[in-house]
């Protein structure tokens, strides 16, 4: 085949439409590099750089970014780069833990409602609708207020307000899968209800649930920051990104921009990187190579 198709003398192959692919690759690579850098910084900087992020240096308070302090210092002279890295560490922990919890809860609820259908589905979805009508932050504030400040109440507060959307997504996906003939075929092949749910429905919704979970990590970080900014999240001495921004409020009005800008960037950059990766991943996991071959 090769000798005739490709090797024929004078065969000039043309291609078109390569640019979509290369921008996609660029986006993927940029996101991957940024996210890797973030995670490495969080994991490696604290053990390697044996500096105290709490070290107060009143002689060097509110210094602008420079050689000694690349991100500048805060109002008691603590190094902002170090504070940001530690803050990101806490925020990422909260984000990942909350996203995982919310996804597990949401998937379980959504899959149960979708797979069982009938009155179970109707009842569960009414509850979900009712909870969704309460503003997230308000409910989050209630949950945090019931406990002493700390990491886990914040995780619980974010997780318990964010499983609703996952439950909706998973239920809708299960319902659409359930109507497909391959589920009919499984039923006819003697599969039990449990087997249909676990072997045929759940694996089909996992890509969606996983994408939702990944996208929820930055969202949960934002939520943590918002709670901390309101003074309801983590204890004020803990360096979380929300606490850092909250502390910087006063200096921003005085014209010192760096204590606000850098923690803000530490929230935005991982958010964009995660969104970019999740988008690329979603394109990849869809088994649709076929359409490229057009068989």
């Amino acid at each position: 085949m090769a000798d005739l198709a490709a090797g024929r003398t004078g065969t000039v192959w043309r291609s078109r439409g390569g640019e979509g692919r290369s921008t996609r690759t660029l986006r993927l690579r940029t996101s991957a590099v940024l996210l890797t850098a973030t995670v490495l910084a969080v994991l490696l900087v604290p053990p390697l750089v044996r500096l105290d992020q709490q070290a107060v240096d009143l002689a060097a308070k509110l210094e602008a970014p420079g050689w000694d302090h690349p991100f500048g210092t805060d109002d008691v002279g603590r190094d902002l780069l170090l504070r940001c890295v530690y803050g990101l560490r806490v925020s990422l922990l909260v984000g990942v833990a909350a996203a995982l919890t919310a996804t597990v809860v949401g998937t379980a609820v959504g899959a149960t409602a979708g797979a069982l259908g009938g009155w179970v589905d109707r009842g569960v979805m009414r509850v979900v609708d009712a909870l969704s009508s309460v503003p997230h932050l308000l409910m989050g504030v209630f949950i945090v207020a019931m406990f002493r400040p700390g990491v886990w109440p914040v995780v619980a507060s974010v997780a318990l307000t964010h499983w609703l959307s996952t439950a909706r997504i998973v239920r809708a996906e299960v319902l659409s899968l359930r109507a497909r003939p391959h589920i009919d075929a499984a039923v006819s092949g003697g599969a039990s209800r449990w087997r249909v749910t676990v072997r045929h429905l759940l694996p089909g919704v996992l890509p969606q649930a996983a994408t939702a979970a990944v996208l929820m990590v930055p969202h949960a970080m934002w939520h943590e920051s918002a709670l901390s900014f309101l003074g309801l999240g983590l204890p004020t001495h803990t360096a979380s990104l929300g606490n850092l921004i909250q502390e910087a409020r006063g200096s921003l009005l005085a014209g010192q921009w760096w204590p606000t800008l850098f923690p803000g960037l530490f929230i935005i950059v991982p958010t964009l990187a995660v969104a970019g990766l999740a988008g690329a991943w979603r394109e990849r996991i869809n088994p649709r190579r076929r359409s490229e071959l057009m068989l």
């Binding site: 000039v12 192959w13 043309r14 291609s15 078109r16 439409g17 359409s291 490229e292």
Partner: peptide, 10 residues
């Protein structure tokens, strides 16, 4: 002209 990006024509 509706081939995907990984196609070549001659």
């Amino acid at each position: 002209g509706l081939l995907p990006g990984n196609a070549q024509t001659a």
